[in-house]
Amino acid sequence: MIKRLSPWILAGPASLLVLVFLILPVGSTLIATFTDAKGWAAPYAAFFNSGFRRTVLYRTIEISLITTIISVVLGFIAAYVVAQMPARLKSIMIIAAVFPLLTGVVVRSFAWLILLGKNGILNTALLSVGFISEPISMLYTEGAVIAAMVYLFVPLMILTLAGVLEGIPKDVVEAATSLGATPFAVFRQVILPLAMPGLIVGAVLVFTGSFTSYATPQLLGGERQMMMGTLLYQRAMVTFDWTGASTVAAIMVVVTILIVVLMTRLARRLNPMAG
């Protein structure tokens, strides 16, 4: 009897924790958006009728996708180089890549404030070289947000991909070469398909991370480059519009799931082995 019940008993505390602190609050948040006095879908209509809020949604998707693509490309190149290195150098490079993760998101986003500000390092440097005649405003632009987010997420991408690329046996690459595959063909027909599982995991991590980010768009995007995370905060804590905030949250969940499913589908089309 005890033996039959023991899995339930052991899984019990964690399940209860998840139920009380995750499923119930998220559930009640979502329910709030369907039980509005003005009709069950009214908050959503309000959201999509507002040009401003639509722009925020599109901007968030756009910034997250661009961040994901750049991170995938940069991360792949770095991970590929790292994977070729001798073991000792490899661990040093991995530690170097992970090092920024040891500081907080706020600290790292703040570093970009210092870099990109009106009197920031980049402007000062460009001015002193004579490349520009007066400081250009780089803060509170989409570019600033993307740059900072790429910087935040590339280590994650490198970590995910380095493991996968290291797992590709050397003799498989050599076999392809001996069969006449050019370095590009080896990359396209062997390495890329075999790295696909890692690419998907990395891309999903980066995309969901960027899509739900708050500190970076808040610091570097400000009011002008508002994203879903900052919009949610504004709705809840500035305007005290709880239903509006819940609607933003619900849309974020749906979009995230949609994009993740889409990415997995796409990757599976590229390679039947993946996923």
Binding site: V172, A175, S178, G180, T182, V186, N271, P272
Partner: peptide, 19 residues
């Protein structure tokens, strides 16, 4: 270059393309 040599190679660990 290795890919221009036109040599058939059989490896100890088979080295088949798993995908």
């Amino acid at each position: 270059a290795a890919h221009k040599r036109d040599i058939g190679l059989v490896f100890q660990n088979y080295a088949l393309f798993p995908h």
